[in-house]
Design a protein around this nucleic acid. Structure first.
Lengths: 202, 202
DNA sequence: CGCCATTTTCATCATGTGTTGAATTATGAG
DNA sequence: CTCATAATTCAACACATGATGAAAATGGCG
């Protein structure tokens, strides 16, 4: 957005003032990675969105892959956020889990990173990132911590519902899910999750 | 894979025999689009996989976009496949819907097309394809046909669970979901879908 | 002020992309 | 056999991409 003064013949060299250009680049990268995914986002488009030369992107962040992981720095530590879910016991665990997810995703600043991550997972070579990442780190500990039988199976059932919700509500923004009230969502989905977590499995 | 005879000095010109090269190209395109998505799959890689010059791809299918839609020709007409779901009444509709989905997705030949479609949906500019496609055409008629209240809302709830299942089981191939028996899946998920379709909503 | 480190652009490279047009060879109809 | 047509590759284009190295401008420290 910010174009340089075209009056001067040469725009080269340091810019006056103290603009945090590095942060602007990172913000642009986050936004673009989140909406277009990794491979469809060019370094040049990020630089253009930040009003900056592409070289500057490399100067600050190195390679494009480096920039991606820098843009993905999660604003939440999942293990911390999910602690109340695991501590509260089996009763109501589904509802608590859902509340944590919704509160994280409905935070505007966190959303961009999360969308970038989700998009990255579905690009080639990003598949086991989710398998080992989301399932392993985010949801993985929940099953054992709640002391249920067949924890892996139960957790993947829960994941299938949560991921579907995320896809439709946040990634594809399908109505009426996208603009549905959080409390209604909790009331709708909590029983499902609770069943997957606690009820006897076939 | 099929390389030409390197003994001859020039490989140009028509190939002897009657190989259905067009079909081979289409098969390669399906496989690559399904695993890597649209933008990460190059015309050249498709040509290479079919053992063919890139020009031939254009000769047969025109532009890359044309090839994509050609590769996406669904082997099933969703409206036909879903007819029994709508005709059977509300009772057991969730289970019937699930059975249709699983039978289509577990067919090896259909799977590649479907994976390509799903991947395409999550690429930039492919978003409203799902919104209008899957929701509108595939699942859309189900709600009204079953005569339930708030059909859009119910259908999007169902979609959120089905899509999550598809993502984990077929796209990311997360265990134990990926190798779970179909009947077990039906027993597990049918109650959820039935609840979304028929139970009172909050 | 003088100087060094930082920030920024410019010019450029090597590579990969989608696409086109001409050239070459085999097939099949008459 | 002849010859038009279809099948196939070669060579090249115009362009976008990720990346690099050098040059220029500014800020802050002495």
């Amino acid at each position: 957005m910010t174009t340089r003064d075209p009056g001067r013949s040469n725009n080269r060299g340091r810019r006056p003032g103290a603009p945090d250009t590095r942060a602007e680049i990172l913000a642009s990268a986050r936004a673009l990675f989140a909406t277009r995914g990794f491979s469809s986002t060019s370094v040049r488009s990020i630089a253009a969105a930040a009003g900056v030369d592409p070289s500057l992107v490399h100067h600050y962040f190195g390679t494009k892959d480096d920039l991606f992981v820098a843009a993905l720095e999660l604003p939440v530590d999942p293990r911390v956020a999910l602690q109340p879910v695991m501590e509260g016991g089996l009763e109501g665990a589904g509802e608590r889990l859902l509340r944590v997810f919704l509160s994280v995703w409905d935070d505007e600043t966190a959303r961009l990173s999360l969308l970038g991550l989700v998009r990255g997972v579905f690009e080639p070579s990003g598949r086991q990132l989710l398998r080992d990442g989301l399932i392993g780190v985010v949801l993985g500990p929940i099953g054992p911590a709640l002391g249920v039988d067949e924890p892996q199976r139960r957790v993947s059932l829960v994941a299938s519902q949560v991921i579907g919700l995320v896809m439709l509500r946040y990634v594809l923004e399908v109505e009426p899910l996208a603009s549905m009230d959080g409390e209604v969502l909790v009331a709708t989905y909590a029983p499902t999750l609770q069943r997957y977590l606690a009820d006897p499995l076939p």
